[in-house]
Nucleic acid binder design. Structure first.
Lengths: 210, 210, 210, 210
DNA sequence: GATGAATGAGTATTCATTCAT
DNA sequence: TATGAATGAATACTCATTCAT
């Protein structure tokens, strides 16, 4: 057992080592320009070793998102379960959580939005894909629950199902991607935090009943 | 003269023929999986011919966005110039314009959001790239002007410069991408119009002064 | 006839126009990097027109050499036929002729040496190839005759057949190519005339009896 | 150590395997008509493997020459350093060395003369190019030294600097190329050795004082 | 004759992936 | 497990040549 456990831990350490390297390389070069050899070199491993831990390049790429989604899910669920918070306080907490999610790994979160609705998604192993879908669904579900409580409580305007959660999430990803692309297009300074703050503030005002 | 003109028109027709084929193929397979041969076959032309009209694969891809951006620019500018509309009416008109922009070519607009902030952007010819940047900048600038008028008129809350335009645009792109990815992930029905409508409504309420 | 003749002359003019353009382009870019379109542009004609005058790229390239070979043949034969010159005077005249041949078109003569013993030679039309071979053979034959006269006259050492002509010719082409490559390798100044002069002087001294 | 050494040797063996195959294919088809796949097939390797050992097609081609140049350099330097030989004996030894250089690898030496003063030379990696240039320069330099000694000793006529070395070298390459092209043009028998011998003999006689 | 748009065969090169050690 | 040499399929792009006008 001790041995088995140690082996398991060792294995996990390798995975992390690869993921960290992959993150750096993918962020710098993008999915297509990054080669497995680049990543192996960055991880100080051989190319062959990468395939002992990840089925292929696309799964390695997708694994990055998984880590973020797990963090997102934990944070969002935690807010949802805070029974002693009033709905509006929960939304405030949710907003804070989203800031943290972005802070947790900004580059990867941008990649994640690219991943979704892209070619890559179609070639993942069913297990990984369903894990990603599951976490996404459960996270957006928890967000939806929070808004439902607010509607039930008479705080927020009632909309078609999940509308508030969808828009909340769209706002988040939209701002993140737009700020990222502004940096590429115009080399403008990064106002993301400020813009995100203003965006959520407007959103909240917009959904609050008089 | 007649001849020259006819040739010019013929040339333009070929470009469109290629663009139409490229749109189909890129939408179906994504940028990387789509081959120039696929596109040539779809256009019922030979691979070599594609290169008579487009410098390379990336420029062909980027050309798709250009058409949309031109349409976006025209619509947004038109709203901006409507001098006999009050600021709030202009924002309503702007929202309508955005619906139309999406309707004009939904698939390509999704591609365009992918294009931005991606590797591809870096390898375009300077001319095409600056044309894209220019149209983006001028369009978002016109949107910003509309909101500024609203602020000056006391309709909307004053924020840091361009905040309203940035958030408006983020909301638009965020909703479009999120709805697109939902379709891939869940094969859910397309509520885009409805979600976009709700999103803009919330946004407007959120920025309106008491 | 008048018409036919004018047409013939017109046709020859076009050929020359193309040859002049081809010479410029081939000299600058070399055979492989030069495109038929480059040549057409230089000749202010369309690519298709080139094929009305030359069967293909290789024949166009070879045609350049033909012009030089014709000039070489004329000069060498002329020396050979000068019945009132003593053998040694003929060799002097031959050397002068070689200078002129080089001066006639230095760039093309370098190309010609590349042409010989290269892949290109193998793909020419039988007619052109035999024309080239014929001129080469007859020219070197005339040179050989000149040296034979010198041997018969007791001026020069008797060697195996054609040895003097072969070495004379090798010396010429060797010096030309070596000086050309020195310019590429070292950007050294062009001493060709001087080196050629010295080379021929040594050669003459080397073959002269006592 | 043992392992590292064996690997190093194995690697060198592969390089040689490729070089041998490349030599065969380039000799038969010439640079342009030879494909990397041809060479890979000949070497019983896959195309990709070629690129593990050579940066690209041109470097592979140039590597062939390098081997000859190294041999040339060794032989020429060796003659130069023979302190107990009189200048004229050194020139005799030099001539012998040149025969050997030609014998060492006749086909490649013809290719080498084509390489020089051609387009190919311009696209090599700086390292390889400078290695080639360096060996050329040092070899011709050593040859020049030998003749200088002869001049200083009163054996040979004094000419402008390096003239004798340049002409010696030109004679060598000129004869080699001319004999090669005669074989292509006329399918004449190979008299190279004989012609070379006569040529050097004439040359020596031509430069010798009284 | 002249054009030049269209062709499409031809190829160097890359890189994810494998597998013998 | 880890390696990294070898693989070989995949593809963007070029350009000599053709042919309808």
């Amino acid at each position: 057992m001790g041995i088995r456990e140690r082996k398991e831990r060792e294995k996990e350490r390798r995975r992390q080592q690869i993921i960290v390297a992959a993150k750096r390389v993918f962020s710098e070069k993008g999915f297509n320009k990054a080669t497995m050899e680049d990543i192996a070199t960055e991880a100080e491993l051989s190319p062959g070793t990468l395939y002992l831990y990840f089925k292929n390049k696309e799964e390695l790429y997708a694994s990055l998102s998984l880590r973020i989604l797990q963090y997102l899910y934990i944070r969002v669920t935690h807010v949802h379960k805070e029974t002693d918070l009033a709905p509006r306080a929960k939304v405030k907490a949710l907003i804070e959580a989203m800031y943290d999610v972005y802070d947790f790994d900004p580059l990867t979160i941008i990649n994640m939005f690219h991943l979704q609705s892209s070619e890559t998604l179609k070639n993942l192993s069913p297990e990984l894909l369903s894990e990603i879908k599951d976490l996404s669904r459960k996270s957006i579900g928890a967000i939806a629950e929070i808004f439902k409580e607010g509607i039930a409580n008479g705080d927020y305007i009632d909309r078609h199902p999940n509308a508030l959660a969808d828009i909340f999430w769209s706002l988040f990803s939209g701002v993140v991607l737009w700020e990222a692309s502004k940096k590429i297009i115009d080399h403008r300074k990064d106002y993301l935090k400020q813009t995100l703050h203003t965006a959520f503030e407007i959103f909240e005002k917009g959904i609050t009943l008089s």
